[in-house]
Design a protein around this nucleic acid. Structure first.
Length: 644
RNA sequence: GCGCCCAUAGCUCAGGUGGAUAGAGCACCGGCCUUCUAAGCCGGGAGUCAAGGGUUCGAAUCCCUUUGGGCGCGCCA
């Protein structure tokens, strides 16, 4: 696949070769080193380059003089006649106006490449492990998780389109206090069938409804209070799981102390495992609603040797860190916790080590193994990332909620240390790239919707998807995905449920989908009337300025994908599609009376239909990249107001 | 207190590794449907790019300071 930009870059590169040989330029440039920009202003041509600025210093001349000398060489080298004009402008820009054959060729490029159009290979098949979501399986996903999920999944699609070899992974935090708390919460409901039945009857109306009879006896202070816990207990009861007549703490102590021990009560262990598994199923279902599948689900349990045929990687990596002096033993100092285990020696990771470059250095050394030997979450994460490296991934990307940003330098420090321990002197903590996703503020008609994770009053991702589903079954997914992608990751996002349901320009997803449907509708009509040209017909009859703009517009897709992949910013694709559709809707409307796509003249009609085909292909390719459906037709929703 | 992120039109936000006269949607006002979808289009007003300083041919973009917001600083996960 050759693209318009590549052709022009090649042309300019050949011109720099010639100019270098003639002593005009101090050096020649490779095509990829040449910046091509698409000027906003029509008077600046179709494309512009600032390469004379880049070479001015080395040439010892001012950019303008360099450009004056270089421009004639560009014209000379243009054997194919792609350039209609080469102008020197401003302080040294080279403005290029493309000839008709050149910009028309981009329509042909798109049709020749079809679904492949837009792909590039800036990733050079580099293997990347992309971890995202990794929400604790202790409850339903909320909107913030959804944003991370959509961003991660779309980033994976964009990176793949740009030639990266991406593996997506979900890390299941199924060990530790939080899952223990989940099990305990379910256990409490399991013990009291009558209370549970009453609660479920009341909660059938919705999660945030208060339950007047209160929670079961001994319900943990910081337990999970959502209705889903009672539902989970009910499901387990149906499946024949019974709560043992014992104090939960017996089992909790077992869980906390040594999960591999057989001294714990098997019943409680079963309840806990079944509970998180059930939450995970639901998470998987929610993700499926957003068309998100993972290549790999990684269980924390296997790092602790709890899954079949797994070793205790956590303790193992801790030992290795100590052996390489990246960790050390020191007195345990449990802070103001009266029932903490008696102080012993704890193991600390040397996160403040001078061997770590500043960006990867922590503010204090963190505990990985507590005084009683229990590993912290951090320890498991070290083992997890060590495992990623052991699988041969040299480039890691983690998508995290922005509230985890305090954790980033710590984790990069670990990656740095682990890499050095593996004996690679060029290794740095930068092998881990962290994308922080800011939070989502949920609004309904401009007013904030109350959130709060353990209050029992939170809006789940599923609620949101369901609420914004209007006509087609995929409309909820499409709206959520597209709107989440309308902001870059590091900007907070307001998600208004009312706007997301709306079928107007407030809601960009409909604008773009409507554009695609409109293109399909034109092609459908042309086919009915027998006016469709062969797929390889040349669009030589395109002549309008609007048509030039559209042809140049479709040629941008590969550039946009490359840029989005390199910057890890999928939102660029969403903005590109919105802009391209705006240009198309304008073309369509402006020429409704004087230059309709399907007109009298066959040559013009065929050329315009080729352009329409190209637009449909590009918008379709772009939407697929975002995981949003590209509908062939859209039927208007009934007006919410008065019907006629 | 320390650290990270953010500040662009009335509102919500875009603005390739620094480039030419800073853009879009919403809202507001005025136009456009016999004819491929009016879920659309065309036109209008609107900015000290938070403030100050610095780097240079050139800064919304890079550096420093200040102000104002968000978040984080557990032997939680």
């Amino acid at each position: 696949m050759t693209t318009l930009h590549e052709r022009i870059r090649d042309l300019l590169a050949r011109a720099t070769d010639a100019a270098f040989a003639a002593g005009v330029l101090p050096q020649a440039l490779a095509p990829h080193a040449i910046q091509l920009e698409r000027p906003r202003q029509a008077s600046h041509g179709d494309m512009a380059t600032n390469l004379c600025f880049a070479l001015a210093k080395a040439a010892g001349k001012n950019p303008r003089a360099l450009a004056d000398a270089f421009a004639p060489i560009v014209r000379q080298v243009d054997a194919h006649g792609w350039l209609q004009a080469v102008e020197v402008a401003g302080p040294g820009f080279l403005n290029l106006r493309l000839s008709d054959v050149a910009w028309q060729a981009s329509v042909t490029d798109v049709l020749a490449a079809g679904a492949q159009f837009g792909l590039c290979n800036v990733g050079a098949q580099e293997r990347v492990l992309l971890e995202f979501v990794s929400a604790n399986p202790t409850g339903p996903m909320h909107v913030g998780h959804g944003r991370g999920a959509v961003l991660g999944d779309t980033l994976a699609r964009v990176l793949r389109a740009a030639g990266f070899d991406v593996t997506t992974e979900y890390y299941i935090n199924n060990v530790g206090n939080q899952v223990g708390k989940l099990g305990e919460s379910v256990w409490c409901w399991l013990r009291e069938p009558e209370l549970r039945a009453a609660a479920l009857r009341i909660w059938a109306n919705g999660d945030p409804v208060p339950f007047p009879d209160g929670f079961p006896k001994d319900f943990p202070e910081d337990g999970y209070r959502g209705a889903y816990i009672a539902t989970c207990a009910e499901d387990l009861a149906q499946a024949g799981v019974a709560a043992p007549h014992a104090h939960w703490s017996d089992d909790a102590a077992w869980l906390a102390a040594d999960p591999a021990s057989v001294t714990g009560r098997a019943d409680n262990r079963t309840i806990t495992v079944r509970s998180w598994q059930r939450q995970l199923e639901r998470i998987r279902d929610d993700l499926a609603k957003l068309d998100i599948q993972f290549d790999s689900w990684f269980s924390e349990r296997r790092l602790h040797g709890l899954d079949p045929h797994s070793d205790d990687a956590v303790k193992d990596v801790a030992r290795r860190l100590v052996a390489s002096d990246w960790a050390y033993e020191d007195a345990s100092q449990p802070a103001d916790d009266e029932d903490a285990a008696p102080a012993g020696k704890a193991i600390f990771f040397r996160g403040t080590s001078e061997l770590l470059p500043k960006p990867f250095r922590d503010t204090k050394d963190r505990v990985i193994l507590r005084g009683d030997g229990r590993p912290t979450y951090f320890a498991a994460d070290i083992a997890y990332h060590d495992h990623k490296l052991a699988r041969g991934f040299n480039h890691l990307i983690n998508v995290l909620g922005a509230d985890h940003h305090g954790y980033v330098s710590r984790l990069k420090g670990v990656i740095h240390a682990l890499g050095l321990m593996r004996g690679d002197p060029r290794w740095t903590g930068d092998r881990l790239e962290v994308i922080l996703v800011q939070m989502v503020a949920l609004l309904r008609d401009g007013k904030p919707v109350p959130m709060g994770k353990r209050s029992g009053e939170f809006v789940t991702l599923r609620d949101v998807i369901d609420e914004v589903t209007t006509g087609e079954p995929t409309s909820g997914r499409d709206a959520v995905r597209f709107l989440f992608l309308m902001r870059k990751a590091d900007a907070q996002l307001d998600f208004d449920l009312e706007v997301a349901r709306r079928t107007s320009m407030d809601n960009p997803v409909y604008y773009v989908q409507y554009g695609h449907a409109r293109l399909c509708s034109i092609l459908e009509r042309a086919e009915k009337e027998g006016r469709l040209p062969p797929l390889d017909a040349l669009p030589a009859a395109l002549a309008l300025e609007d048509e030039r703009a559209l042809a140049l517009g479709v040629a941008d897709l590969p550039e946009v994908i490359a840029r989005a992949a390199k910057a890890r910013e999928p939102h660029l694709v969403a903005y590109y599609l919105t802009d391209l559709c705006r240009a198309f809707h304008g073309y369509y409307s402006r020429h409704k009376s004087d230059a309709r796509v399907i007109g009298e003249n066959d040559a013009e009609t065929h050329a315009r239909l080729q352009l329409v085909r190209a637009l449909k292909q590009v918008i379709g390719n772009g939407l697929r990249l975002l995981g949003v459906t590209a509908p062939e037709r859209m039927t208007a929703l009934p007006e919410t107001g008065i019907e006629e």
